[in-house]
């Protein structure tokens, strides 16, 4: 399998940036390594970092900034 997904362990609101002025954590074409932060999820007024478990290149996002996401939902497609 060349394509893998980064999942969110938590449900909540997905953010691509640390704050509205900041650059996105990652964008299409970026290389990520295991443990790299790729987004935030807000639940119960707390923010939690979402990290990639694998190395790869961000191929595309499956969710938009501020989308509501569920636990276990695929967020990003990674390719080799």
């Amino acid at each position: 399998m060349a394509n893998r997904a980064v999942k969110s362990p938590l449900p909540g609101t997905f953010y691509r940036r640390a704050n509205p002025q900041a650059d996105p954590f990652v964008s299409e074409g970026d290389r990520v390594e295991p443990g790299d932060v790729v987004g935030l999820v807000e639940i119960m007024k707390n923010f939690h970092e979402i990290t990639s478990e694998e190395a790869g290149t961000v191929e595309r996002f499956l969710v938009e900034n501020e989308d509501l996401i569920e636990a276990g939902q695929n967020l990003i497609v990674l390719s080799d």
Partner: peptide, 9 residues
Amino acid sequence: ELRIGISEG
């Protein structure tokens, strides 16, 4: 050790 995962509802 008791471990509870994250509920997917």
